[in-house]
Design a protein around this nucleic acid. Structure first.
Lengths: 188, 188, 188, 188
DNA sequence: GATGAATGAGAGTTCATTCAT
DNA sequence: AATGAATGAACTCTCATTCAT
């Protein structure tokens, strides 16, 4: 049979089930059954259950780390912020199930070691997208831009319309929010 | 000793622990120990663990139901939408730990019977705050207004500043988003 | 409301549920709910769960004790044995649910204190209905006569026909068995 | 240590304890302790407690199914019926503890899924051993033949005498009952 | 690269029972 | 004559994890 790719298959099935049912409610037995291997086989590839989730997170954390690294090298202009949102949007689309998992299992993820890591990344992102001299409302706009993208990713499925169009609209609104925030500086 | 109020105390402790650690990771033993009663005592007051959470949700669902009922009786004007946000903001503040729990345990809540109920309420709210003839981006603005308030409620603690000022700013941005959306109609 | 008869009502409901579901599977909560009283009320009338069952058994044990007492005063003739069966048959009909309970919960009843008592009665009955000089097959006939009546009581419901006719047939066969057994003595 | 045969050992111990104390009164902890394994080990071999009992029943149901299949292929003569009893007698002896369990835990077994199955088998047997034109008393004789064997199996231990002789007598009486029933047809 | 067999810890739940009121 | 509140002990069952093979 197909072999050598078991590790990858475990990750795929685990992510699917974690996203669908939640981390705690997904047992290793269930994952093993989906793969038609034994639980013990999972332990050949991963040291613990948490290890599986950590391995999944690396795929998510890397693009964000790259985004942060990129943003830190750029001038803190409006264009940079807009591009950040575009890149973040792309990252979100590229790892949708993982983000969904994150979103819906925050309580669990929080004390999963990787949890702090992830929250730190988000805080860093919000720091890079706003400026110290923004008014409070403009800071909220920046943070709102990021979270609107999160919400958009999952809640927008309850709005009807062409998926592609919906995605574009979400990005448009986010970009618009940081643009307003940035211009808001002029108001002071 | 303590008498008559045990049911209430269970709800308080349960909400606290559920919000802090998550639903699955909070055992009935733990709740009982915090209250210095036995697990069996919990079962005198609630039929199941899920029952505890359901009882908590009723306190949350009621204000939202009232908000929906109110909104449905109003004309679909901009002022109505703005007032909806103000009321929703107040409801959020009045039941912050519960919202935090909701937010962070979505995967769990989803199949908790009350889960669907809650999602339905949110969908209804988003329907009441937008109009069929809004452009897609304006719809996103409306939905973003609601979710920015959610996010604001919890993520804003990582932004420094006066709490009262932060809260006001979150509401301001949300109101601004629906206002833009509503005005956007003219653009078409 | 009706009062003063609670004790009786408990017995009725308990017997019904014990016979239907078994002793272990019937909880005091269930009995209390059927009666629309609290569990604690049961404890006002009976010291323990076992106590309820013991009280029920007395109603069953008494007729059998009377039958035994009567039989012991009679000559050990065929006529006596036949009359014993008729009386036993009547006792069975008069306490059908209790016999059903006995029959279907032997494992439980066995170590219920009353259990030994009941078994002793049955052994005594089988001793009174046979004679020391019967051949082994004739002893089996006598015991079979008693147990055919038991089985008849419950298994015959799966045979169609007029209930009255079925009951009469069961008694007829039982009487016939002891008659054959008694006559068998001549064969030796 | 012990290897490979754990499943079998569980069945053996379980049957022994179920027969001795009843199904409900035998806990998995108790079974596990007798085997010097943990409760969880039982769950490796059987999905539930009920599953253990079901597995036991298969050993009992099979011989009876074979008996039924055999009887259905035979002419409905007296000889067939007599042979049926002989075979049933053998089946009973070969699975005595299981029959004892059945007999003494009817209330429990009834809603054990396998319960209906078993009752159906008994009803089928009683149908095969009597004829539609039998008088009611003769039907009772046939059913009595089967149940005398059941009763004989367990109650006869209270009668003294050589076990082998007792067993033979039980079978003799059962055979005699169907013979009488069959001959009874001439009386009509 | 994977399995079969098992474990220890703990989960949620139910039960008969008690007792102050 | 009965209730409200609670307990302690037990139960069935599930989980992540281990390890010899």
């Amino acid at each position: 049979m197909a072999r050598g790719n078991t590790r990858q298959r475990i990750q795929d099935v685990a992510l699917e089930l974690f996203a669908e049912q939640g981390y705690e409610k997904t047992s290793l037995r269930e994952i093993a059954e989906h793969l038609e291997v034994t639980k013990a086989a999972l332990y050949y590839h991963f040291k613990t259950k948490e290890d599986i989730v950590i391995s999944l997170f690396r795929d998510l954390t890397r693009p964000i780390d790259e985004l942060i690294a990129w943003a830190e090298r750029q001038p803190r202009t409006l264009e940079t912020k807009q591009e950040m949102l575009r890149r973040y949007h792309a990252a979100l689309l590229g790892a949708a199930p993982l983000f969904r998992f994150m979103q819906e299992n925050q309580a669990t993820v929080r004390d999963l070691a990787i949890g702090e890591t992830f929250k730190d990344r988000m805080i860093t992102l919000t720091r890079l997208i706003q400026e110290p001299d923004y008014a409070m409302a403009d800071r909220v706009r920046c943070i709102g831009a990021l979270f609107t993208m999160h919400a958009g990713m999952f809640f927008m499925q309850h709005v009807d319309g062409d998926p592609e169009e919906k995605r574009a609209a979400v990005l448009e609104v986010a970009v618009d929010l940081v643009t307003q925030a940035h211009r808001g500086r002029a108001r002071d």
